[in-house]
């Protein structure tokens, strides 16, 4: 299995960030996990590195419920930014919400690779690698 190089975890819950990182480390999915509490920071990082493939992540795990900028706003902004990026980034929504309306709303963003509900399981993490 080819390990993923870079994963961004975007979540305002520090416990969740920590747990996710531990799980990713255990399965050796990635050797480069970056944690963000604010989606705004992620967006700024991507904007400043549109042409720097090494600085861009391979996968973003995005929470929906966040203060300041929530997951929805990030998705809107990212859909505009995506064509300028030199790398195809896989975005997974990772949320505690099991609300169907949220799921449908996420489906409208066709570039989202998957809708995952917390907690993450090893099976799900293994699928991310494929």
């Amino acid at each position: 299995m080819k390990p993923l190089h870079s994963i961004f975890i975007v979540d305002d819950d520090p416990i969740h960030q920590q747990i996710t990182q531990i799980m990713l480390d255990r399965l050796s999915i990635s050797n480069d996990v970056t944690k963000f509490s604010d989606a705004q920071d992620v967006l700024e990082h991507l904007r400043t590195h549109t042409n720097d493939a090494a600085a861009l992540p391979d996968v973003i795990l995005l929470d929906l419920n966040m203060p300041i900028m929530d997951g929805w706003e990030f998705l809107e902004a990212f859909s505009l930014l995506r064509p300028q990026l030199c790398k195809d980034i896989k975005v997974y929504v990772l949320t505690s919400s099991i609300d169907d309306t949220d799921k449908e709303r996420v489906n409208k963003f066709d570039f989202v690779a998957g809708y995952l509900t917390k907690p993450l399981t090893n099976d799900v993490i293994m699928k991310l690698g494929r």
């Binding site: 819950d13 996710t20 255990r26 419920n65 919400s97 509900t117 917390k118 907690p119 090893n122």
Partner: peptide, 24 residues
């Protein structure tokens, strides 16, 4: 219901995940 699904599920999910990694 929305509050429950979001704000209660999140810590419960954390508990579940913690249980999993602790067991492992």
């Amino acid at each position: 219901a929305h509050i429950t699904s979001h704000n209660l599920r999140a810590p419960i999910a954390n508990l579940k995940a913690l249980m999993q990694i602790m067991n492992e």
